[in-house]
Design a protein around this nucleic acid. Structure first.
Lengths: 271, 271
DNA sequence: GTGGGGGTTCACTCAGATAATCACAATAAG
DNA sequence: CTTATTGTGATTATCTGAGTGAACCCCCAC
């Protein structure tokens, strides 16, 4: 994914956790030593010696290093697992706290009502799209049609949600482009209708020349649609998933996909 | 804990997740509306209208808002649970990634060996101290003596670690200053020796005048010691836990505490 | 077609945070 | 006592992000 030296990569990761450059560098340096003095840290980390002290002190308050008060002072990084666990806990608590706080503010002054007919929304990020997918499956009433174009679009949590839908009598139809996935899905959800192919118009993009590949396609109760795609062409090699989300039976997008799906599925099911 | 208006508090929390001020404000504003335009967001969030667009676009790439491409554009925040879940997942992945990356760099150039006799280390933060406590319990061979001075020092995970220690034949002695905790610990760990009081010299700090109160005290195999305390006096009302950690049978600190504990415990057990 | 107004994007300034360097005090060793 | 090393504090440079305004675009009215 990334071809930087490992310690450089670790520094970047640590900065994503809110550490400053010097703090991240100092921690990585300490992770490479059983223990070290300010001088040693400075030498292998490019952090000016006089700034090591501040950095390490901050790290200590965050629970990432220990300090031995001697002369010269000695510093030691906590174990990798301790560090990861400490950070994980920190952010776990923050999400809980955030969730609670957000709940308290929801009530807001409604400006005005607008009647909505063709709502089509864009959202992005695999994680957000996964959440939305699960939520839509959860609220399904009668029918779920799901096309999985990429393995990443079928996390294990989704299986349980689909099973729950089946259990309450929802019809579940699943289309898969990758045959290797078929077995897994069929054994996961024996009650669902699973089929492969007939979806070339989805995956084959060679002749059209566009680099967009469909990730998932979800149609719930013929009423609500979610389509996600990966845009390989857009520069950075990251796998950034984007999606559109539409609701309303008479929504243009929903109508198109409904038509597309039903014809595509019918021809497949008849064969 | 905090007496700010809830939305202010939410903004601060979001910034701790790496969001910029405008991004955090825009998200909170959107959380208060079913949906909104740039103008509406600007009005209730103090974000300059012309910058709402950047902010929201960033939020979209992070999976926190959806965009409706119309004129004017409409924005909508994902549900609270979706947002919290997205952020949680994000940082979960980062900790995993960090853990993996750190493992790859451990090997470093050893500068020189120093023989250590009296190592005493300082570390801080409840989370880090909890991690260390558990690790020490896990590595115990023969005996664990634990004094719990504050309820926060006895998280549920610790019970399992202590039970595991008991199961492998380690002698576990637990001292508690708060009687209300005694029952819980005794039912949690019937095989452990639990006692109260006889520890006034730990908790009562009235006459000494110092504001330090002991949080936990752990002695493992008469060899390794961890003492944590809360410093109420140090200005900010935060409950910042600090600890010292010593290892080595002939370590001065370890020796002192070993003596202190054995006399204290003996008198108690004889009574 | 032409003019006006709202919506959107872009470019720029300024301030605060943070990286980088230096000067000096404290301490230990010789 | 001298000197090298450790630790603290102050100072400067650099950069990011907040704040502001100008320009562009599109739709609609005239």
């Amino acid at each position: 994914m990334n071809d930087l030296p490992h310690h450089e990569q670790a520094i970047e990761l640590l900065q994503e956790f809110g550490l400053k450059e010097y703090e991240a560098k100092a921690f990585v340096a300490l992770s490479r030593l059983p223990e070290g003095t300010a001088k040693e840290i400075s030498e292998i980390s490019e952090v000016p010696r006089t700034r090591v002290y501040d950095a390490v002190r901050v790290l200590e308050t965050k629970g990432l290093v220990e300090i031995q008060h001697a002369n010269p002072q000695r510093f030691r990084a906590v174990s990798i697992d301790e560090a990861a666990e400490t950070l994980r806990r920190e952010y776990e608590e923050r999400t809980d706290s955030l969730r609670a706080t957000l709940r308290k503010i929801e009530p807001a002054a409604p400006t005005e009502e607008t009647e909505i007919t063709h709502e089509v929304w864009a959202l992005s990020g695999a994680s957000a799209i996964t959440s939305r997918t699960q939520q839509l499956v959860d609220e399904s009433d009668r029918e779920v049609i799901l096309v999985i174009g990429d393995e990443s679009a079928y996390p294990s949590e989704l299986r349980d949600r689909l099973q729950a839908a089946l259990d309450r009598g929802v019809s579940v139809v699943i289309g898969i482009t990758d045959p290797s996935l078929q077995e897994r899905v069929e054994s996961d959800l024996p009650e669902a209708k699973v089929f492969v192919s007939a979806l070339e118009w989805l995956s084959s993009s060679a002749e059209t020349g566009d680099e967009t590949v469909i990730g998932r396609l979800l149609l719930v109760d013929r009423n609500t649609i979610l389509v996600s795609s990966f845009h390989e062409s857009t520069g950075d090699g990251r796998d950034h998933e984007q999606a559109v989300f539409g609701r309303g039976f008479d929504n243009g997008l929903v109508a198109i996909v409904r038509r597309l799906m039903s014809t595509g599925l019918l021809s497949e099911m008849n064969s």
